[in-house]
Simulated scan of single mutants.
Amino acid sequence: MANIKSAVKRIDVNNKKRALNQSYKSDMRSQIKRVEKLVEAKDVDSAKSALQTTTKKIDKAVQKGVIHQNTGNRQKARLSKKVKELA
């Protein structure tokens, strides 16, 4: 455990940031899985609408710095490719 006041504060801030980052990442992953499940079920309309919300979640994670921009673009491209192949 840290003894210095600034180090204690830094630990608290890091823990809060980590919790926020985990929530953004978890939400994003859940949406990705939802789209993939809809693609497996061959539900075109629901997959398209879910893809829109997933894209927003991925963009938000990129904006917050939780994931790298290239990673976000790659995930969006893969998902949209799956949905287009379904249609």
Score class of each variant (00 low, 15 high):
Asn70Gly: 07
Asn70Trp: 06
Val62His: 03
Thr53Val: 09
Arg78Gln: 14
Ile58Gly: 10
Ser80Pro: 00
Asn70Asp: 13
Gln75Thr: 06
Arg78Val: 10
His68Asn: 14
Val66Gly: 09
Ile58Val: 14
Asp59Lys: 00
Arg74Cys: 04
Lys57Ser: 15
Thr53Leu: 06
Gly65Val: 10
Gly72Arg: 05
Arg78Pro: 01
Glu85Ser: 13
Arg74Asn: 14
Lys60Thr: 14
Gly72Phe: 05
Ile58Ala: 10
Lys82Gly: 00
Lys57Trp: 05
Lys64Met: 09
Asn73Cys: 01
Lys57Asp: 07
Gly65Met: 11
Gln69His: 13
Gln63Val: 05
Ser80Tyr: 03
Asp59Ala: 05
Glu85Val: 05
Ile67Asp: 13
Arg74Met: 07
Thr71Asn: 12
Leu79Val: 03
Asn70Leu: 12
Lys76Ser: 10
Lys64Thr: 04
Thr53Ile: 07
Ser80Ala: 15
Arg74Thr: 12
Arg74Asp: 13
Val83Asp: 01
Thr55Val: 08
Thr53Asp: 09
Thr71Glu: 15
Lys64Gln: 10
Gln63Ser: 15
Leu86Trp: 01
Ile67Ala: 05
Val83His: 00
Lys56Asp: 11
Ala77Asp: 02
Ile67Ser: 08
Asn73Glu: 08
Ala77Met: 03
Ala61Trp: 05
Ala77Ile: 02
Ile58Cys: 09
Lys84Phe: 01
Gln75Asn: 11
Lys76Asn: 07
Thr54Cys: 08
Ala77Gln: 04
Lys56Cys: 02
Thr71Gln: 11
His68Leu: 13
Gln75Pro: 00
Thr54Phe: 02
Ala61Arg: 03
Ala77Val: 03
Leu79Ile: 04
Arg78Ile: 09
Lys60Ser: 15
Ala77Thr: 03
Gln63His: 10
Ala50Gly: 03
Arg74Val: 08
Ala77Arg: 03
Ala77Ser: 14
Lys60Phe: 11
Asn73Tyr: 05
Gln69Ser: 15
Lys81Gly: 08
Thr71Pro: 01
Ile58Pro: 14
Asn70His: 11
Lys56Trp: 04
Lys82Trp: 00
Lys57Phe: 10
Ala61Phe: 06
Thr53Met: 05
Thr55Glu: 14
Ile67Phe: 08
Arg78Trp: 05
Lys82Asn: 02
Lys64Val: 08
Leu79Arg: 06
Val83Phe: 01
Lys57Leu: 10
Lys84Pro: 00
Lys84Leu: 02
Ala77Tyr: 01
Arg74Ser: 12
Gly65Lys: 03
Thr54Glu: 06
Gln69Asp: 14
Thr55Ser: 15
Leu79Lys: 04
Glu85Gln: 13
Lys82Arg: 04
Arg78Met: 12
Ile58Asp: 07
Gln69Phe: 12
Thr53Gln: 10
Arg78Lys: 14
Gln63Phe: 10
Gln75Arg: 13
Ser80Cys: 04
Lys56Val: 11
Ala50Ser: 12
Asn73Arg: 04
Val83Arg: 01
Thr55Trp: 06
Gln52Trp: 08
Val66Tyr: 10
Lys64Trp: 01
Ala50Glu: 08
Thr54Pro: 04
Ile58Leu: 08
Lys81Val: 02
